[in-house]
Design a protein around this nucleic acid. Structure first.
Lengths: 193, 193
DNA sequence: CCTACCGATCGGTAGG
DNA sequence: CCTACCGATCGGTAGG
């Protein structure tokens, strides 16, 4: 869908995602946003309530996508290794398919005010717990090395959340392809067997 | 060294590192900085030239540390696996020992203006090339799996550069300890052998 | 290191 | 969706 066919409100949200990612939330002014769309800054407020509302929409929409995609791929799977692989590939697909929004989710959430900030942190912690549980299952099943679960979870998310810093959706590698490769990397490491 | 014993200029740099990390460069005002130190905003300019100069100092000082520590640990080592391990642990030590500054290096460099911005990117690319060469060596020596060098380098740095998002230098794990564990993780992956 | 101040820009509102 | 505008705050300077 090209950007001209979006409703003005959707267009504002999409341009905000891009500017918040490229310049950061604080360094993006409502005048920057309006100019990129081609209207006056004051006109934005016919469609939105505040600058922070834009940030909230981005952060919570992408959070919901992470949960939805996780639940979708876990449904029915019981093998610990496969459950972990599915979680990683699901997360990667969401990130790689929403590079602007996920960048904002990872880097700009701290500019949320209360009570959104606490709600955001709670959702993120709940999501991270799912990955910790998968790691625990894998260790108990004897499939994974006896790593520190909390530590390993952090390293996994560092890898996954760094995707927007280098991935370009230009056709060279599809989201599904990098998802598989990242899962391989996390499971196998660099050493030859 | 406690913050009171620093020269005023060093104190400004240190507080700037912390605020730029916590709030971001754009969201940190010179008045925030002055207030945290206990002087008026105008007085900062007896010690520094501009806000951006503070950012430049942080970014280039930590870049120099990455190069210095890399050169120090590579000196004399020839085994590909050990060379990679030393590079990873050196980088990790610099990050874990400079959490504020390295966070700014990773996340706030985009607020640099030219010509600093281009210089920064050039240094970072040169540093990344060193890691790519290490990966290439390891593959050619048959020690590493045949991964895509550029892709693997990105994943390695994602893991390393995510450290400030979770590591707390509170005595539970020393920089050297997490450096070793991260090297294990990158080399071995999660799967049990 | 301070007081006093500058022009520019910020997020947002009133009223049409 | 626009013009006109608000008070607040920005990075920084002059002068002491």
């Amino acid at each position: 869908m090209s950007i001209e066919t979006l409703s003005r409100k959707d267009q504002i949200n999409q341009v905000a995602q891009n500017l918040f990612r490229e310049k950061g939330y604080s360094a993006t002014s409502m005048r920057d946003l309006a100019k990129a769309i081609g209207i006056e800054a004051a006109s934005l407020y016919s469609h939105i309530k505040s600058k922070e509302e834009l940030l909230q929409n981005i952060c919570f929409r992408i959070a919901a996508e992470f949960f939805d995609e996780y639940d979708r791929v876990q449904n029915g799977t019981t093998d610990p290794k496969l459950r972990f692989r599915h979680a990683v590939t699901a997360h990667t697909r969401v990130v790689a398919s929403n590079l602007d929004a996920s960048s904002v989710f990872f880097n700009e959430w701290r500019h949320l005010n209360e009570p959104s900030l606490s709600e955001f942190k709670a959702q993120r912690a709940a999501y991270e717990d799912r990955f910790k549980n998968l790691l625990r299952e894998g260790i108990e099943a004897g499939v994974f090395r006896k790593v520190q679960v909390s530590f390993a979870m952090r390293l996994v998310f560092s890898t996954l959340n760094g995707i927007p810093t280098w991935y370009r959706n230009d056709g060279a590698l599809s989201p599904d392809q990098i998802a598989e490769q990242i899962a391989d990397f996390l499971l196998e490491g660099l050493l030859k067997k």
